[in-house]
């Protein structure tokens, strides 16, 4: 009895393997590990630069902000308020004015 077992097991493995191959899509995924680049770009020097660097760069790098068109002080206020109210940026109320002022000087409507 014992001697007969092995071939049966081998046969089952072969059958199950071939079923798997036939029934399945051939696509295989491979695990991925990467490093995403970071940015050490800071907001350019000027009044309020330290405040914006300290308050804004935790959530996003500076690039997109520096790519913005010239916007009115009202529009910059709305943008900063959106970061605080909608995206929960932890900006202390006393720092909001300096950030808006910095952005308006850097990228204000001409």
């Amino acid at each position: 009895m014992r001697r007969n077992r092995l071939p049966v097991v081998v046969l089952l493995i072969v059958v199950s393997m071939s079923t798997d191959v036939c029934a399945a899509s051939p696509f295989e995924l491979k695990s991925v590990k990467i490093d995403l680049p970071d940015s050490d770009r800071m907001f350019p020097a000027g009044p309020g630069a330290d405040t914006i660097n300290n308050n804004c760069l935790a959530c996003h790098s500076a690039g997109m902000v520096l790519n913005q068109p010239s916007l009115s002080k009202q529009a910059w206020t709305a943008a900063v308020d959106k970061m605080i109210n909608n995206y929960k940026a932890p900006v202390a109320p006393e720092n909001v004015g300096a950030i808006v002022e910095y952005l308006t000087v850097l990228k204000g409507a001409k």
Partner: peptide, 21 residues
């Protein structure tokens, strides 16, 4: 233009983090 992102070729860099390419 940037080629710094793994598995990506030359892309226009709008923002590094979070990525906008």
């Amino acid at each position: 233009m940037t080629t710094a992102f793994p598995q990506k070729g030359a892309m226009i860099l709008q923002r590094t983090r979070p990525p906008l390419l």
